[in-house]
Simulated scan of single mutants.
Amino acid sequence: MRGDGGDILSRLAPYALARYDGSDGVHLVLDSAAGPLRIVIIVDRQPGAPGTWFVIDDSHLATRLACVARFGCLLAGQMPGPLPSILRLSPQQKLRQIRMLCIAEGRRMGVAVRRIAAGIYSERILHLSRNEWRASSWHRAFYRDLDGAAFYQNGGHIALLQGLKQGGDSLAA
């Protein structure tokens, strides 16, 4: 979005959950009854310049347009409406995202694989023999989540938050 910066930032201040002033503009996460909205404001130094919306035309265009419509409602003082369905995670997807983040953090901290699995799935894993562990459904589930957790390592979670990547079971736009 492009605008004068000052007026729109003061209008959005009551809704701001987070703000980051980057070299490419002002990044905001706004609170709304229907869920958070993430926007970037590129400040135009010309006084009186009209606002312009920049929407990336990619495979997420429909979702991006729905988010722009929600943001327009918020600016007008109206309820922005529900999140687009593609941005909502099912309870199972939320739990898997949590497990993958725990696995990624455990691996980063150097915790043993079986200890991470025991913390996530069941303490009984620590009492299994090596062959029982490898034959267990916990082993398969852990390595499936470990593969998904690889996305979060080396900053993948930042790309997910910025809507640039798909991670695990979720799609961010």
Results as ranks from 00 to 15, higher is better:
17 L>A: 13
27 H>F: 13
97 Q>M: 12
18 A>F: 12
89 L>Y: 05
35 G>E: 00
154 N>Q: 12
25 G>P: 02
56 I>Q: 15
41 I>E: 00
9 L>A: 08
39 I>D: 01
126 L>E: 10
135 A>C: 08
118 A>H: 08
130 R>D: 15
121 Y>T: 03
157 H>G: 13
53 W>S: 10
154 N>I: 00
87 L>I: 02
81 G>E: 08
125 I>N: 00
141 A>D: 14
55 V>N: 10
63 T>I: 11
135 A>H: 09
60 H>N: 12
18 A>H: 13
52 T>N: 11
114 R>D: 06
69 A>N: 15
131 N>Q: 15
122 S>M: 04
111 V>W: 02
29 V>M: 05
95 L>N: 10
159 A>Y: 13
144 R>P: 01
147 D>C: 05
98 I>N: 12
167 G>N: 10
111 V>P: 00
49 A>Q: 10
73 C>W: 08
136 S>D: 07
172 A>I: 05
49 A>S: 15
119 G>F: 04
31 D>G: 05
121 Y>R: 03
91 P>K: 12
129 S>Y: 03
40 V>C: 14
20 Y>M: 06
140 R>W: 09
171 L>C: 11
157 H>Q: 14
164 L>W: 08
71 F>S: 03
119 G>Q: 02
49 A>G: 06
12 L>I: 08
128 L>H: 00
135 A>L: 07
107 R>L: 13
74 L>Y: 00
82 P>S: 03
127 H>P: 00
63 T>E: 13
22 G>M: 01
11 R>P: 06
144 R>G: 06
3 G>E: 03
91 P>G: 12
69 A>E: 15
138 W>T: 09
98 I>K: 14
111 V>Y: 04
104 A>M: 01
64 R>I: 02
107 R>D: 11
173 A>K: 02
83 L>T: 01
124 R>K: 13
27 H>I: 03
63 T>Y: 07
69 A>W: 08
145 D>F: 00
117 A>S: 06
41 I>Y: 02
28 L>E: 01
95 L>W: 09
94 K>Q: 14
165 K>S: 14
58 D>H: 10
38 R>W: 07
144 R>K: 12
34 A>S: 15
10 S>V: 02
120 I>M: 06
83 L>F: 10
6 G>H: 12
22 G>A: 14
165 K>F: 05
146 L>G: 02
70 R>G: 03
96 R>S: 08
81 G>A: 06
104 A>L: 01
48 G>A: 11
4 D>H: 13
118 A>Q: 06
51 G>D: 15
90 S>M: 06
135 A>V: 01
118 A>R: 03
169 D>W: 09
153 Q>R: 14
